Computed example of a mutant assay.
Amino acid sequence: MNALIIGGGIGGLTAAIALRRAGIDATVYERTPELREVGAGITLWANAIAALGQLELAEPIMALGMPELHGSIRAANGQVLTRLDNSALRGQFGAPSIAIHRADLHSKLLSALGEQHVVLGRQITRFEEGGAGVTAFFADGSQARGDVLVGADGLHSLVRAQLHGPQPPVYAGYTAWRAVVPFDHARLTPGETWGRGVRFGQVGLANGLAYWFATQNVPAGQRKPGAEKAELLRNLRGWHAPVEDLVRAADESQILRNDIFDRPPLAQWGTGRVTLLGDAAHPMTPNLGQGACQAIEDAIVLMKALRAANDLPAALRQYEAQRMARTRWLVAQSRRVGEVGQWQNSVAVGLRALAAKYVLPAMQSRQLRQIVAYQV
């Protein structure tokens, strides 16, 4: 069996690794001329680590990250609203949660796959089914033919657009800044800080680095090249230590800014010999840290569906059916968490602080267990 995987991100690489481990000849086609990830951090929860364990990648990837054992939600003045202890999750589910640099994760996945199985500079323009196969057509005039095609080409997936039409993604109402900086871990206050329409998060990474992010309610498309750092420092003036110091530690060129989008769930991901995976299928806001985790889960379920399949279209529909309810729930939950975190009405923010103290811990614990207890 020959699988064409469109997109060389975390989901596409993991899917190619999984399929090749199952004896399927999988090749990744990536539109960019060079494979590299952005300078940002990522959280891999226990469910993703357990899934990676099925590819014998859990240990080497954990070695590149830092265990996320605890964190807090704070008010802008530093008052702790609630604490989160993840250490119990490892004992219960057999895998930790880690924070890792996206570039380190991407590099490890590429190494595990082998660069010879990635074709760069291939922007898909369309695909055609016929003759018991599917053909991908690329912008440079080249073609590739396979038994199945997997669209793992992200939020703005061209494979999804051909399947379901070119609907635009849905803006969540806020933008996000991110950076990775050298920083003393002893000074960090891991977790999130909630203000009025503004949030800030921080976590330690390996090698003396820290990852931080900030959000703000603004209209889409409001980037300010060369002035993002100054904008952030205005938004976060007077917040508890070390929030402002983390922002100051970043060079302007290191600060990434992206508006936050997701999409409404699909009734069916693919048709025939074509399916979707990761953000192409179920893009979600980053509020639960599950975007990459769900792409990794997708890859394992896809592998198991195709491994012994006689009817390939039926196997792809089986994969989709197994994944759709879970990812639909996570898209909705992630958007809901983001909406609450971005409240800016003073009365609502006060009520949110009370809920964080007295209601959120139990809700958060149940939600986390529902997320990480899933077995692919």
Results as ranks from 00 to 15, higher is better:
residue 320 E to G: 09
residue 185 H to R: 12
residue 348 A to M: 13
residue 2 N to K: 12
residue 89 L to D: 09
residue 10 I to Q: 01
residue 360 L to R: 12
residue 190 P to L: 04
residue 354 L to H: 13
residue 308 A to L: 02
residue 357 K to D: 10
residue 352 R to C: 07
residue 289 G to E: 05
residue 293 C to L: 07
residue 325 A to D: 14
residue 205 L to K: 02
residue 45 W to M: 14
residue 276 L to P: 05
residue 336 R to E: 05
residue 122 R to F: 04
residue 258 N to C: 03
residue 341 G to R: 01
residue 270 G to T: 07
residue 314 A to V: 11
residue 57 L to N: 06
residue 218 V to R: 00
residue 174 Y to S: 01
residue 43 T to A: 11
residue 184 D to R: 08
residue 348 A to F: 13
residue 303 M to A: 15
residue 106 H to V: 11
residue 57 L to G: 03
residue 352 R to N: 10
residue 323 R to W: 04
residue 152 A to Q: 04
residue 350 G to R: 15
residue 76 A to D: 11
residue 131 G to A: 11
residue 79 Q to I: 09
residue 81 L to W: 01
residue 324 M to S: 15
residue 57 L to M: 10
residue 218 V to Q: 03
residue 26 A to C: 12
residue 279 D to K: 03
residue 240 H to E: 01
residue 142 S to C: 12
residue 362 A to W: 13
residue 10 I to D: 00
residue 256 L to C: 01
residue 31 R to H: 13
residue 351 L to R: 08
residue 42 I to L: 12
residue 210 A to G: 02
residue 330 L to S: 09
residue 356 A to N: 14
residue 316 L to W: 08
residue 151 G to E: 05
residue 114 G to L: 04
residue 226 G to M: 06
residue 121 G to I: 06
residue 209 L to P: 01
residue 35 L to C: 12
residue 84 L to W: 14
residue 206 A to Q: 12
residue 147 D to H: 03
residue 192 E to D: 03
residue 260 I to D: 00
residue 199 R to S: 08
residue 303 M to W: 15
residue 196 R to L: 03
residue 127 F to H: 00
residue 71 G to R: 05
residue 192 E to R: 09
residue 104 D to K: 06
residue 234 R to Q: 12
residue 187 R to L: 10
residue 304 K to M: 09
residue 3 A to R: 04
residue 213 F to T: 02
residue 113 L to F: 00
residue 372 V to P: 03
residue 328 R to N: 07
residue 64 L to W: 08
residue 26 A to N: 04
residue 33 P to C: 08
residue 254 Q to W: 07
residue 293 C to S: 12
residue 91 G to L: 07
residue 22 A to P: 10
residue 293 C to G: 10
residue 319 Y to A: 02
residue 157 S to F: 04
residue 158 L to Y: 01
residue 22 A to M: 13
residue 212 W to C: 00
